[in-house]
Amino acid sequence: MDATLVRRKFTKKEIEQIYGTRHIGRDQARGLVSLMDFFCFSEACLIADIVQHFVDAKLEFDAPYVYQDVNRAIQHVHRSGLAHRGILSDSQRYPVKDVRDDELYYNICLLFLTHSELQRLLRMLKENGKKLFLLTNSPYYFVDGGMRFMLEDSLGERDSWRELFDVVIAKANKPEFYTSENLFRCYDEEKDTLAFSKVDSFLPDRVYYHGCLKFFLQITKRNGPELIYFGDHLYSDLRGPSKARWRTAAIIHELEVCLQFH
């Protein structure tokens, strides 16, 4: 059986035999897909499982078709809201606050902080006069459920995670957010509808959908270098803001693991 079609860890010698030089030319790169965030782990795992199934069953297949079908399926589950509703229906299983594995400590909260430390960090920034905004591609009900889960232990009964942010923007459609001229819409949480009135200011007790970088800067009257944006995805979170002259901070979850060994 071809070693390239067996789901196992290759040795360094096998990698060199299959791929040769470590340098990937521009022509080769056109046919490759970048997997660069936590969300891609499930995609890569599913692709590997399906390929292994075809190999074990001795079925003929063309690898690009496997990727295309898996990618379409994942996009459907994500965009239709099936993934969001599934996660919220069993929040104890999916959104992880703290995960311990032997001697390594992983925390998927912002900047590897525990949920209480994250809450204290946000409050400290607020108390020192910083304006905080949340910009996400997810729908508001999913953001609200996740933030409640992450911060419920450190917030008081009457407190809301919304008090920590001056502006909350959901379904922003990054990276298009940085280049489009989409208008902001005010979102009604109770009715699950969007208002028709023009958005020319951001109110702290409101949630906004869509929008774009151009109108965000006009409404907030903030220049690029005055803003710092934290994100974990090169294209959706870092490349766009950098072009707008925002300062950026990359959240690299794997970095903590590397530091454990150095």
Rank of each mutant, 00 (worst) to 15 (best):
residue 5 L to W: 10
residue 5 L to Q: 10
residue 7 R to H: 13
residue 7 R to G: 11
residue 8 R to N: 00
residue 8 R to K: 00
residue 10 F to A: 03
residue 11 T to L: 13
residue 11 T to N: 05
residue 13 K to I: 15
residue 14 E to S: 01
residue 15 I to Y: 15
residue 16 E to I: 13
residue 17 Q to P: 03
residue 17 Q to I: 05
residue 18 I to E: 06
residue 19 Y to C: 12
residue 25 G to D: 02
residue 27 D to H: 13
residue 30 R to W: 11
residue 30 R to I: 12
residue 34 S to C: 10
residue 36 M to R: 14
residue 37 D to V: 08
residue 38 F to M: 15
residue 39 F to C: 03
residue 40 C to N: 15
residue 40 C to E: 14
residue 47 I to D: 13
residue 50 I to Y: 13
residue 50 I to T: 10
residue 50 I to K: 15
residue 50 I to W: 12
residue 53 H to Q: 10
residue 55 V to I: 07
residue 56 D to K: 05
residue 57 A to N: 14
residue 59 L to D: 12
residue 62 D to M: 08
residue 62 D to A: 09
residue 65 Y to I: 13
residue 66 V to Q: 00
residue 68 Q to I: 05
residue 68 Q to V: 06
residue 68 Q to Y: 10
residue 70 V to E: 06
residue 71 N to F: 02
residue 72 R to N: 07
residue 73 A to T: 11
residue 74 I to E: 07
residue 74 I to L: 09
residue 76 H to P: 01
residue 79 R to S: 15
residue 86 G to V: 04
residue 86 G to M: 03
residue 87 I to W: 02
residue 88 L to H: 00
residue 93 R to T: 10
residue 96 V to D: 04
residue 96 V to P: 02
residue 97 K to V: 09
residue 97 K to I: 10
residue 97 K to S: 06
residue 97 K to A: 05
residue 99 V to D: 13
residue 103 E to W: 08
residue 103 E to F: 09
residue 104 L to H: 13
residue 105 Y to H: 14
residue 107 N to Q: 05
residue 110 L to P: 03
residue 115 H to V: 03
residue 121 L to R: 08
residue 129 G to T: 06
residue 130 K to L: 09
residue 131 K to T: 09
residue 134 L to N: 04
residue 136 T to Y: 00
residue 137 N to D: 14
residue 139 P to I: 00
residue 140 Y to W: 02
residue 140 Y to R: 01
residue 140 Y to A: 02
residue 142 F to Y: 11
residue 144 D to P: 00
residue 149 F to C: 08
residue 151 L to F: 04
residue 154 S to Y: 02
residue 156 G to H: 03
residue 160 S to N: 07
residue 161 W to E: 01
residue 162 R to E: 10
residue 165 F to Y: 02
residue 165 F to D: 02
residue 167 V to S: 00
residue 170 A to Q: 10
residue 170 A to D: 08
residue 172 A to D: 09
residue 172 A to V: 06
residue 175 P to I: 00
residue 175 P to K: 03
residue 178 Y to E: 05
residue 182 N to P: 09
residue 182 N to G: 00
residue 183 L to K: 15
residue 184 F to D: 04
residue 189 E to T: 12
residue 189 E to W: 09
residue 189 E to A: 12
residue 190 E to L: 15
residue 196 F to M: 09
residue 198 K to H: 11
residue 199 V to P: 10
residue 200 D to E: 13
residue 200 D to A: 01
residue 203 L to E: 12
residue 203 L to P: 01
residue 206 R to E: 07
residue 208 Y to L: 05
residue 211 G to C: 08
residue 213 L to M: 14
residue 218 Q to D: 11
residue 221 K to N: 09
residue 223 N to F: 09
residue 224 G to R: 02
residue 225 P to R: 08
residue 225 P to H: 04
residue 225 P to W: 01
residue 228 I to G: 06
residue 229 Y to D: 04
residue 230 F to Y: 07
residue 232 D to N: 09
residue 233 H to Y: 05
residue 234 L to P: 03
residue 236 S to P: 03
residue 236 S to M: 06
residue 238 L to N: 00
residue 245 R to E: 08
residue 248 T to R: 08
residue 251 I to E: 07
residue 254 E to I: 01
residue 257 V to F: 09
residue 257 V to H: 14
residue 259 L to D: 13
residue 260 Q to F: 15
residue 262 H to D: 12
